[in-house]
Design a protein around this nucleic acid. Structure first.
Lengths: 352, 352
DNA sequence: TTTGTTGATTGAATCGGTTCAAATCTACAC
DNA sequence: GTGTAGATTTGAACCGATTCAATCAACAAA
């Protein structure tokens, strides 16, 4: 199988037609007379021609017909992280419908990320900004392609982005627990600032680098205060969304003299880890402790008890994002999407 | 931001150098004199030049630096199916290490799949042949790019492929149950033939279209026969790896006068569904029923009790596959990789 | 002064197609 | 026999870069 050595021009010559006609045989078969078409096709087959090379075509057309999804994480992140997975499944669905390809681009270290973004063959980018958002945005800007940032941890209004209503959603979550009667509530947060885990104070949260976590914390506080729970009385433990730090946070919260009767988790992944930690310790959910998560990943519906959570409308987000890069219709200002409360088995009134 | 309108030639002209030099400024900066380089770079900046267009470069280089992973399934399959996910995470890891991009290509209907494969910008393909394998192989062949088939359901030795040792692995799984003392064992299989679910007989299995399922069944039988269990006495229910048919299969197996004390599931996904079906019916695993799966997906380690299973070495498979397409080192004949028994909590000796 | 050598730059060819205006070829009516 | 509309086909320009043989400048050695 000699590869790539046969060009359209060769086929044209062998078939005795002009290159223009040969090209038409493949890309606009209707304009060429049937018997000529058949003949060219037959010649191509005999020569082992693999069909018009994509790169040649690409060069003129300028459209790749694929979008890139980028994150400042190792590639495996897309398949490991439940949130990324749920989002990508939704994005994939939209792409499927519109016949668009999907390329995954990512890298943990700056160098490679840079190169990968520069050299990705795509018509635009969807950025997963959970971490290293600015870097990502900056690199993508240089490509001068349409892009849209998701889960942007940054208030810069000049970045086209759509995000969920973190503060509003968090408020609903907290209100749900308070209305059930919970008064001792602990928070397991996602990151507020780079490379830090552990208990955090109010001031630190207000000055947080990552707006997502900050907004969610603020939402929690506001809702709880309407129930007379002061923010000073709500312990917050910052995790990096990994097992080790979440468990440390749980140790911390439940070793207090008055352990919480409910946990506000800033991600479903944290909530899921909390659930299994509690169950392993013989505590019953929701009888002993209630848990509410954030994100609405499918896994939350598959555990026992089901996880109560604030669900992101992944399909809507995906739809909006894909449309933005495909139609070059980037939002001029930050767009906001609501999250909805999904009540399952992991929340109930506190004991007695 | 006027896009795409500035070419390397424009920059060259504006900077007063030849296009060749301008090109070198970007792709081989070391060969051009520093002050010239600076000047060209500066001109480029002022013009808003986005850097050498990939397509132009591509046309000459001929390498995309990305591999495609293809399946005859909707795109979301890559993120929904646990096996695909585990495999892709492993593939992603290898790609990351070698700085290769990853493009996902798929489609449920033949038409689109055809087009998607034809137009994917990749240097080669890894084929996930769980279903519609021949179609996939055939379409890919036409692209004349290196490719390798995984989980190929077909005995054709001319297809470069690596697969796990299905018969051997299945035998180990069955032996494990038999050694624990189980004698009444039910099988929940993956598909033997297109579009069929329900109880299947020995003859049908021997004539099965899909070799993966057939080989696993054969492995089960051989191991069990060394323990005096005849294949006629092992009920097999064919599922399509979906919730509905698995539950139907369980109804079938457990409504028999002598229900099984152990289940051989041909995929972890089936095993996981079995686990929650049994638990929902108040049956304890492994006290009342033992379960052993196949694949070794991460989810199997996260349920309670942990799932005993035959684990595929995803990392090894991924390594081999990526190397094959990148180095154009397709195996000349079908390659086989062993699976290993991972014993967790879902298997134990039968009651009394 | 001439020759050699080294390093930087140029210009043109090339990659593999698509596209479009112009040329050619029907077929049919007048 | 001429005219014309419509269908095909042709040929050349173009897409945006890279590459390489050839040229040029500058300076050291003979």
């Amino acid at each position: 199988m000699v590869k790539g050595t046969i060009r359209l021009a060769d086929v044209a010559k062998a078939a005795g037609v002009s290159q223009g006609t040969a090209s038409n045989v493949f890309s606009r078969p209707d304009v060429v007379r049937e018997e000529v078409r058949e003949h060219v096709l037959e010649t191509a087959r005999q020569l082992g021609y693999a069909g018009p090379s994509l790169t040649g075509r690409l060069l003129r057309a300028g459209k790749v017909n694929a979008i890139g999804v980028a994150a400042a994480e190792p590639l495996a992140y897309f398949f490991d992280d439940p949130w990324a997975r749920a989002l990508l499944a939704a994005i994939a669905q939209v792409c499927d419908a519109s016949g668009t390809g999907l390329a995954l681009v990512s890298a943990k270290d700056r160098q490679k990320l840079d190169w990968n973004i520069k050299s990705a063959l795509v018509d635009g980018f969807i950025l997963l900004c959970v971490e290293g958002g600015e870097k990502l945005v900056q690199l993508t800007r240089e490509r001068q392609l349409p892009f849209i940032a998701l889960a942007l941890n940054d208030d810069d209004p000049s970045v086209p982005s759509v995000s969920v209503d973190n503060a509003g959603g968090a408020a609903i979550a907290a209100r749900h627990l308070a209305e059930l009667g919970h008064r001792r509530i602990g928070v397991l947060s996602t990151e507020f600032s780079y490379d830090h885990v552990g208990p955090v104070g109010i001031g630190e949260i207000e000055r947080a680098v990552y707006s997502t976590s900050r907004d969610r914390a603020t939402g929690y506080w506001q809702a709880l205060e309407t129930f007379g729970i002061r923010r000073e009385d709500v312990p917050v433990y910052e995790t990096d969304n990994q097992k080790a730090s979440v468990e440390a946070g749980l140790e911390y919260l439940f070793s207090k003299p008055e352990p919480p009767t409910a946990i506000l988790a800033m991600s479903d992944y944290i909530a899921l880890l909390t659930l299994s930690w509690l169950q392993a310790r013989g505590l019953s959910v929701p009888a002993d402790v209630s848990i509410i998560g954030f994100d609405g990943v499918p896994e939350g519906g598959m555990v026992e008890p089901g996880l109560t959570t604030m669900a992101q409308p992944f399909a809507r987000i995906a739809e909006r994002a894909v449309r933005a890069v495909l139609d070059d219709a980037m939002p001029v200002e930050r767009e906001m999407i609501d999250v909805t409360l999904v009540v399952r088995g992991s929340t109930a009134p506190p004991k007695q």
